[in-house]
Amino acid sequence: MLALIKHLPRDSALQRELHGEAAEWSITDHLLAATVDHLAVSNWMFQCVNASEDGDQPDPPQPVPRPGSQDEDEDEETEGPDGRSPEAETPEVSPGQLARFFG
């Protein structure tokens, strides 16, 4: 049974549960996101160098969101009206509760 679990495909439900969104990203997806980020930065640098002399510089580009990374802006926006994050409202699940659920 352990051999079957170890060799499950990356997009299996178990892999998604264990690794979250990161299980769905292949190396190709990571390389494509890095390529998009590098192109955006190079276009931004070109605009900065060739901007007019009045001092208006464009804002730097935002990187493509990757699984497991959290933006600083997201932290501020996730707080509710009472100042608590939505994660604080989610109760923790104990191993015993998981065992009872899965039988």
Rank of each mutant, 00 (worst) to 15 (best):
M1D: 11
M1E: 12
L2V: 11
L2M: 11
A3C: 06
I5K: 10
K6F: 11
K6Y: 09
K6P: 03
H7L: 08
H7T: 11
H7G: 09
H7A: 09
L8C: 09
L8P: 06
L8I: 08
P9R: 03
R10P: 01
A13K: 12
L14E: 02
L14F: 12
L14T: 07
Q15P: 00
L18E: 01
L18K: 05
H19S: 07
E21F: 04
E21T: 08
A22F: 01
A22S: 06
A22T: 00
E24D: 11
E24R: 14
W25I: 02
S26F: 04
S26L: 06
T28Y: 11
D29M: 10
H30P: 00
L31E: 10
L32T: 12
A34P: 00
T35H: 14
D37W: 01
H38Y: 11
A40F: 02
A40S: 13
V41F: 12
V41L: 14
V41K: 14
S42E: 13
S42F: 08
S42D: 09
W44R: 02
M45T: 12
M45L: 15
Q47G: 06
C48L: 13
C48H: 08
C48Q: 13
V49G: 08
V49W: 10
A51F: 03
S52V: 05
E53W: 08
E53G: 12
E53L: 12
E53V: 10
D54Q: 10
D54P: 01
Q57D: 08
D59Y: 07
P60N: 03
P61Y: 00
P61F: 00
P61W: 00
Q62K: 15
P63F: 00
P65V: 03
P65Y: 02
R66T: 00
P67Q: 01
G68N: 02
S69D: 04
S69T: 06
Q70N: 04
D73Q: 03
D73G: 02
D73V: 01
D75N: 10
E76K: 10
E76S: 06
E77P: 02
T78I: 12
E79D: 09
E79N: 13
P81C: 08
P81F: 11
D82I: 04
D82R: 08
G83I: 01
R84N: 10
R84Q: 12
S85Q: 07
P86R: 05
E87D: 14
E87H: 13
E87A: 14
A88I: 04
E89Q: 14
E89D: 15
E89A: 15
P91A: 06
P91E: 04
E92P: 05
V93W: 07
V93Y: 05
V93L: 13
S94T: 15
S94V: 03
G96P: 01
G96H: 07
L98P: 05
L98K: 15
L98R: 15
R100M: 06
R100C: 04
F101L: 15
F102W: 11
